[in-house]
Design a protein around this nucleic acid. Structure first.
Lengths: 345, 345
DNA sequence: AAAGATATTGCACTGCTGTGCAGATAGATG
DNA sequence: CATCTATCTGCACAGCAGTGCAATATCTTT
């Protein structure tokens, strides 16, 4: 009894929801068979012009739209691409989502955004959703996916693309930014500007990108015989950058060249340095950021930074999903220096 | 022959794509009927503990996940909510998408993001996609939807939610920000700070929100007997704000109180004012923005602005979609002043 | 132990669309 | 006019999962 009752409740909650018009309804109105309707909306199918016209007229009149859920069921292709992302209100992530949705739509795909809200546990739930909706591909922009689930996705015919990760697993495609090369270049740029006391401003987030940039910068400096001060004041953001400035500049041995692993960190660092410590940039301290978010080019900042090739990555993903064969397992994208005014030339 | 050939080509393009595991496969492995599998994954259905265990074991082993496309087909509920949005890399839009995806996911929905890429024509295509995927609801965050299509959506049982629009049409729900009240308040704040020469910095975008704020500010000033200088230097963004500063401050009768209809405009205005004209804020000019994007609270800006209740709106949408009956046709959300340092108290 | 109540289970049908196949129609050709 | 062919058309089945209904198994009660 109990369970019956629950069923009833569930049913009433999963209310009918006025059914939408189907192909059979259109066929009825147009006076043709349902097959004819289906063929009218299938590229390259054989329908006479008259039938086609009748169908289109009826469809227009009824407001018929092909049910992609049913279509996907047959073709084993839902047309859905999932984007798993956290912190999507931050400039960099937001730009990526924007670029990806645009490019994928151009290729006829549709994007489902799964927000992990920063909770690592949610990544698993998100991957399960990609399976539930039979997504053709999943792009993991942030977060650490459970590898066993990634394997399940691949076994189920899904393409899996991991951005800026480097796990030891066969199957997914890895798209990576040349973080190390950029960090090494940053070190070189600062040294050439005459900086001798280097620091790196990082965060406690510990994502692969952040760690790679931080580590590579320290290594590059070390190989030039320079010890680097590392500051991680909190999560990756403006406030942490400002806090790092307070920590690094309070001491006596203050740095004169700083690499911030993210533009947001850099902007916070810049503001605190100028406003709270009244230091001049780049005269007293040179600063380099990473990402080239739009605020980096604002009048008050003019931040020298590295541009991530967001559009190129989005293009690459869209192109690749269009092809039958997946591309190479690992692709690295170069970053480019954007020279502005926070480093002496 | 021609068409047959095309069919063949199309078929080869719509390649099989390794089929994913289905309930019948699980039933086979578990040694039960397909119904039992279905019941195991249906809340409140009647299955014995042993059967359930066998099914779960087989499902786990095979990596089975219920096909929500098929499930949606039966229930007439896809679980999909569409967000139609443009310019989603801007701070405000990005925050809204973030909040909406999070709240809707909490309610068991999944969000499909349709990027109109700023092309008005794409709004129509986006609405068609919502119909194709049988979305339960569509939230139009930006862009002007063709009203006839909106009607089609509603006739097909879809909920349609328009943000900051005011069209004369029955059916959709309108969620609106108290733009007028805020703009009027902004005028009052500036006058109380002793400003006598007012200006409004707007944009050429002409979206309803922008226009409403601009118009209400001008009207409020007029009723106080003040003529307002209006500047629209370009699209809604930092660069236009800076350009507006150049236009407004170049003349002799420079304003001493400025309402920028968007924070991005305000930040551009602030920077150009301070850096290029060497004016002090708030001593020489008071500035008020709108949105309370995160950059507004950065050290260098400290912008007095209005906070849009993003979280509340997202909550409201999520709650409302959960209920059977749609809420009232129009709901207005209040905005709150965030006092910082760009207006004299 | 027999009858009645209850919990499970499987069958078969539904929802929506795509498509192979066979039959029908129209057009071309000798 | 008869025959062949190219083009359409409709039937029927497939793809996946949910569910009413009837049959079966299990347990309770007298």
């Amino acid at each position: 009894m109990q369970s019956r009752y629950e069923v009833a409740v569930a049913k009433s909650k999963l209310k009918p929801r006025k059914a939408s018009v189907s192909a059979s309804r259109v066929a009825e109105v147009a006076g043709v068979s349902r097959s004819a309707v289906s063929r009218t909306f299938t590229d390259g199918a054989s329908v006479s012009p008259e039938t086609r016209a009748k169908v289109l007229a009826a469809a227009e009149k009824l407001g018929y739209h092909v049910n992609h859920l049913a279509r996907g069921l047959i073709h084993h292709r839902s047309g859905i691409v999932c984007l798993i992302v956290a912190e999507m209100q931050t400039p960099f992530q937001a730009s990526f989502v924007e670029a990806a949705t645009r490019r994928l739509q151009d290729k006829g795909k549709v994007v489902m955004v799964l927000n992990t809200a920063g909770q690592p546990a949610n990544v698993e739930a998100a991957l399960r959703q990609t399976l539930n909706y039979r997504a053709e591909a999943t792009v993991v922009v942030s977060g650490a996916p459970p590898l066993s689930l990634v394997e399940t996705c691949i076994e189920n015919g899904q393409r899996v693309i991991l951005i800026n990760r480097d796990d030891a697993i066969e199957g997914p495609q890895f798209l990576m930014i040349e973080n190390e090369a950029a960090a090494t270049e940053a070190c070189f740029m600062l040294r050439r500007a005459g900086c001798t006391r280097l620091a790196v401003v990082s965060s406690t987030a510990g994502t692969p990108s952040i760690v790679a940039r931080e580590t590579a910068f320290v290594a590059a400096a070390k190989s030039a015989g320079i010890e680097v001060a590392v500051s991680r004041a909190g999560p990756t953001g403006y406030a942490s950058g400002a806090e790092s400035a307070r920590q690094l500049l309070a001491g006596s041995n203050r740095p004169d060249g700083v690499f911030c692993v993210t533009d947001l960190l850099a902007l916070g660092f810049l503001d605190a340095t100028r406003i709270e410590f009244r230091l001049r940039i780049p005269e007293d301290i040179c600063v380099i950021g990473f990402d080239d978010i739009s605020a980096a080019s604002w009048l008050g900042y003019d931040l020298t930074t590295f541009r991530q090739p967001i559009a190129e990555i989005a293009d690459y993903i869209a192109e690749m999903l269009d092809e039958d064969e997946g591309g190479p397992a690992k692709v690295r994208f170069p970053v480019h220096v954007v020279w502005r005014k926070t480093v002496r030339p």
